[in-house]
C-alpha cells in the first residue's frame, strides 16, 4: 500500500517510497488552474534540488509556472515521457502523471508538509 501523499503550498505532492526515494508531482487542482498545458521542462537525473526552489517549468497557453521541490535532495528518476503526454497530468496526476523521483537528504522532510486534509482545506479556501 502506498504511503499517503503530502503537499506543498505551491501544489506539488510528494509520496515516500519503500526504497527511500520520494515521488513528486503536481496536484489535480494545480493542473486545472494552469488550464491548457503546452510544454514542460524537466531536470536531468542527478540534478540537486533544494526545498522551495524551482526544479522545472511548465507552460500553459497563457502562463509559465515554476515547479518547486517539496524537499531537498537529488533527482534519481524523471518521467521523461511526460512532456509528450501532458494530458496525463490531468487524467492521472497522482499516478502516471508523476514528474520526478528524488532521494531526499532527510527521509522525514516530507512530514513537515501538508497532509491531505490540510491541503483540501487550502484549496477549498482558494477555488479556481
Amino acid at each position: 500500500m502506498s504511503a499517503p501523499l503530502r503537499f506543498a503550498k505551491s501544489h506539488e505532492w510528494i509520496r515516500p517510497e519503500a526504497d527511500g526515494t520520494a515521488t513528486v508531482g503536481i496536484s489535480k487542482y494545480a493542473v486545472e488552474a494552469l488550464t491548457d498545458l503546452v510544454f514542460m521542462q524537466l531536470p536531468k537525473v542527478g540534478t540537486r534540488v533544494e526545498a522551495g526552489q524551482s526544479f522545472g517549468e511548465i507552460e500553459s497557453v497563457k502562463a509559465v509556472s515554476d515547479l518547486y521541490a517539496p524537499v531537498s535532495g537529488e533527482v534519481v528518476a524523471v518521467n521523461s515521457t511526460l512532456p509528450d503526454r501532458l494530458d496525463t497530468l490531468g487524467s492521472d496526476p497522482y499516478g502516471e502523471g508523476w514528474i520526478v523521483r528524488i532521494r531526499p537528504d532527510d527521509a522525514r522532510a516530507h512530514e513537515g508538509l501538508l497532509d491531505q486534509a490540510a491541503y483540501d482545506a487550502l484549496i477549498a479556501a482558494n477555488p479556481h
Binding site: 505551491s10 522551495g52 497563457k62 502562463a63 509559465v64 515554476d66 518547486y68
Partner: peptide
Amino acid sequence: GSAQRRLQAAV
C-alpha cells in the same frame, strides 16, 4: 494579447 510568468509569490 498577454502572457504570464507565475512566480512563487507573485505573477
